[in-house]
Write a protein that binds this DNA or RNA. Structure first.
Length: 479
RNA sequence: GGCCAGUUGGUGAAACGGUUAACACAUCGCCCUCUCAAGGCGACAUUCACGGGUUCGAAUCCCGUACUGGUCACCA
């Protein structure tokens, strides 16, 4: 069996959105599952729609996701992407288009846009373009060519019969040839159409498995006609269901929907994003959802790709991101979280202790900011937040509790979480309070919040004895 | 409009003719607990878009209807 070769073939027209990335992921996984090759090819044949920097975004996104491609032109010792506009300069597409004309499988067309429009108006809904240029004699064509008349090259298609192909996901699909038009292969600006360049390159690059979005499902027979015209083998097709924004709309860059870059900026991890999107439209055999890229390579199976659009659910991604953060090696976690913590509280506090305090509650990195703001300065609050059902506390009780806490802590020598906790628990027992009745007012005094990360004693440790006592005093004076 | 495809809970989904219709997110309870989380436990689709068939038996097979999406470019 030939080595599996897949490719990701985006056009550089903007940001990389999640649906795109998932297609890249699937292409990668399909190749890597069988130790095959993954290729990156930029399809920039529409010069009008190019977006500055889009190639870099694609390139960097794949890099950040660790979706490495296996070959490409040499760029400073690394593999760059194949770029179709570069390949065009070498005359590849031009050559193959003209070869098809020689073979009698394609023809020159000199029609203007108005000519086609006219037919469209005459025929109405059941429009099928009949190209008058097909009847041109050799001499007429030569004459037009030598007078530099603009032309395109169109594939010859007989409108009789049917064409069918088998997609690995959607099964066998048959269409009427009368629905297939004589598509343009080479545009009048000399560029190949996407369809044509795509087929030529897939063949030349020996792509065995074409992985792409299901919007190409209905044009696949047209591609096959090109393969057949050349007498080339048709690849396996794997059309992926769309990733949706909601029930009706696909995820798109135009609406500013979740792009990979946006998610990164919000503090989602590439590994978590990849893991999550793998599950949109594909289901593993095992009852498990957390997979590293490597594990995904093993577990992936084309047969389990679904056929329905999947709605992108940021809540589940958020949960999964939290799982990654919690399961991560602690040193790695500290490094990751350090800049977010220090951005808010500077270097005055031990960032590792803060990191520990928020470890179980951070799902996305951008949440950290709001979580720890009170370390700098106690939040503004009103006394009514001392009222807590579970702790059975209220502002009145706080007036008696807080001085006890102050007294206890001022006598605590080694100001560690454990020591503080033990001292306070003991005191609580002595006074006949539940722990929480002591702890909750302390938390409020230190943070100004009814909800704070880590627990009151952990906060006290981080703040240090001096600051802790100061804040308790302030709190008492406010009551 | 023609053609192609899809339709299991709020969401991702499993099930390959016979199960109480898995599992996960979300939601809601309870437990644990120094708040919130995290963790543990439990609840949550009398039903698989609808209507007919086939079958002892259908979410699973067949037909029709409805709805949704895709596609009909010198865009990808």
């Amino acid at each position: 069996m030939n080595k599996i070769r897949t490719r990701f073939a985006p056009s550089p027209t903007g940001y990389m959105h999640i649906g795109n990335l998932r297609t890249a992921l699937y292409a990668y996984l399909i190749a890597k599952k069988d130790d095959g090759d993954f290729i990156l090819r930029v399809e920039d044949t529409d010069q009008g729609r190019l977006v500055e920097g889009a190639v870099d975004i694609i390139f960097n996104t794949l890099k950040q996701c660790d979706l490495k491609h296996d070959e490409g032109p040499d760029v400073g010792g690394n593999y760059g992407p194949y770029v179709q506009s570069e390949r065009m300069k070498a005359g590849i597409y031009h050559k193959y288009a003209h070869k098809l004309v020689e073979m009698g499988k394609a023809h020159y067309c000199f029609c203007k846009e108005e000519d086609i429009q006219k037919q469209r108006e005459q025929q109405g809904d059941s429009f099928y373009f009949v190209d008058p240029c097909k009847k041109l004699t050799k001499e007429e064509i030569e004459a037009k060519l030598s007078s530099n008349e603009a032309y395109v090259i169109r594939l010859n298609v007989e409108p009789e019969g049917t064409t069918s192909f088998t997609d690995e996901v959607y099964g066998t699909i048959t269409v009427d040839n009368s629905t297939l038009d004589e598509m343009v292969l080479l545009k009048s600006d000399g560029f190949p159409t996407y369809n044509f360049a795509n087929v030529i390159d897939d063949h030349l690059m020996e792509i065995t498995d074409v992985v792409r979005g299901n919007e190409y499902l209905s044009s696949t027979p047209k591609y096959n006609l090109i393969y057949e015209a050349f007498g080339w083998d048709i690849p396996r097709y794997i059309h992926c269901p769309p990733v949706m924004k909601d029930e009706h709309q696909k995820l798109s860059k135009r609406n500013g929907d979740a792009s990979f870059q946006d998610l990164l900026a919000k503090g989602y991890l590439p590994e978590a994003i990849l893991n999550y999107i793998a599950l949109l439209g594909w289901a593993p055999e095992e009852e498990r959802e957390i997979y590293s890229l490597k594990e995904l390579c093993q577990a992936f199976n084309v047969k389990r790709i679904g056929t329905t659009g999947a709605i992108f659910d940021i809540e589940k991604l958020t949960w999964m991101n939290g799982v990654y953060l919690r399961n991560m090696d602690m040193d790695k976690y500290y490094e990751l979280v350090k800049p977010y913590i220090q951005e808010v509280i500077g270097t005055g506090f031990d960032y590792k202790l803060v990191a520990n305090a928020i470890h179980d509650r951070v799902n996305i990195l951008s949440e950290i900011k709001d979580m720890i703001g009170f370390f700098n300065k106690t939040d503004d609050y009103t006394a009514d937040i001392y009222t807590n059902k579970k702790a059975k506390t209220d502002p009145e009780l706080a007036k008696t509790i807080l001085p006890i806490v102050l007294d206890t802590l001022s006598k605590t020598e080694t100001f560690s979480n454990e020591n503080i906790f033990n001292a306070l628990s003991e005191k609580a027992k002595e006074c006949g309070y539940k722990n929480i009745t002591m702890m909750y007012p302390l938390q409020v005094a230190l943070s100004g919040r009814s909800v704070a990360p880590g627990g009151a004693t952990a906060i006290a440790e981080i703040l240090g004895k001096e600051e802790t006592l100061k804040r308790i005093n302030e709190a008492i004076s406010r009551l």
